[in-house]
Amino acid sequence: MARFTVARDVRAPATTAWAVLVDWPRHGDWVPLTSVRVLTPHPGGVGARFVARTGAGPLAFDDPMTVVAWQPPAGNDPGAAPGHCEVEKSGRVVHGRARFTVTPLPGGHCRVAWIEDVTVVPHRITRHAGPVVALAGRAAFGATIRAFARDAERAVTPR
C-alpha cells in the first residue's frame, strides 16, 4: 500500500472549505483529466457514492468511491472540532481509502489535510514501487490541494 499526506493552510473558514471540498463534481476542476459524477441522490453523508473518471480515451479509468465516515467541522473558531471525511475506493485500478480533515485556525482560516492509503492494480506495482507511487501521489495531490485552496479562498473573497 502507498501512503501519503498533503496539507495546506487555507484562507477560508473551515465550514466554507468543507462545503467546497465535499462538492464532489468540483474535484474535476482541480484534478487534471478528471470528471466526477455523484451516483446517489444525496451527495453528502455516510453511504454517498460517486465516481471519478480520470484519463483520456482508452487510458481512462473509473475510481468509484463510497463515503464511510462523515463529520463536518463543528464551527470556524479555533478549538472547534475539525471535520473529517473518509472514502473507500473500490475500482479496478485503485483500491484503498482516502480521507481529509478540515481544522479551524485563527483568523477565519483552516488547515486541510488529505491522506491517501492506496494500492494500484496490478498490486505488484504498489508492492515494489510503493515509495514511487507515494511520491507521485504527493506531487499530484499537492497540486490538487493548491487548486482547491484557491477555489475555497475565492468563495470568501469578493471579486
Rank of each mutant, 00 (worst) to 15 (best):
W70S: 04
W114C: 03
G142T: 08
T15F: 05
W18D: 00
T66K: 10
S90P: 07
P43R: 13
R124L: 15
T126I: 08
T157G: 07
S35V: 10
T103A: 02
I145A: 01
V121C: 13
R37E: 15
A139E: 13
R49N: 04
F141M: 10
F100I: 00
G57F: 10
L59S: 13
E86K: 01
P78T: 03
G57S: 10
W70E: 08
V112C: 07
T34Y: 04
R146P: 09
P41M: 13
A143Q: 12
R99Y: 14
V133Y: 01
P32L: 11
G108I: 03
P122S: 07
P64I: 03
M1C: 12
P58D: 11
M65R: 09
P13M: 03
V94M: 12
H27I: 03
V6T: 06
V118K: 01
H84I: 09
C110V: 00
R97D: 12
R138I: 07
A52R: 06
W114T: 05
A2W: 08
V6N: 02
V94Q: 02
G47Y: 14
W114V: 08
S90D: 12
V31S: 04
P104H: 02
T126K: 01
P41R: 11
V87L: 13
T103I: 02
V102H: 00
A74R: 14
S35M: 15
D151L: 05
C110D: 01
D117H: 10
A152G: 00
P13G: 08
A147R: 04
C110E: 01
V94I: 15
K89C: 14
R111H: 12
A149M: 04
V6M: 08
L135A: 15
T119I: 13
F141R: 00
H123G: 12
T54Y: 13
A113K: 05
G96A: 05
R37L: 06
P72Q: 12
P78D: 08
A152T: 05
G107Y: 02
G45C: 07
A56D: 12
A134C: 08
G108N: 08
R8S: 10
V118H: 06
R146V: 10
D62T: 04
A80K: 02
G91I: 02
W18E: 00
I125P: 00
L21F: 15
A152D: 03
V133K: 02
A60P: 05
E116W: 06
A12H: 04
T103H: 00
A139P: 05
P25N: 12
F148R: 03
W114Q: 08
W30S: 04
H42S: 15
G44H: 15
A56H: 11
F100R: 01
V68S: 11
V94A: 09
T16M: 01
A12E: 02
E153F: 00
F100H: 04
V31M: 11
L33D: 15
A74G: 14
P106G: 06
T126E: 14
T101W: 03
L21T: 03
G45H: 11
G45P: 01
V94F: 07
I125E: 07
V22C: 08
G44W: 14
A149T: 00
G107E: 08
T66E: 13
E116Y: 05
G55R: 01
T66W: 10
D9C: 09
G79Q: 10
A143H: 15
V36N: 10
G55V: 03
A17G: 03
H123I: 05
G45L: 09
G96H: 01
P25D: 04
C85T: 07
G47W: 11
V102A: 00
A81S: 13
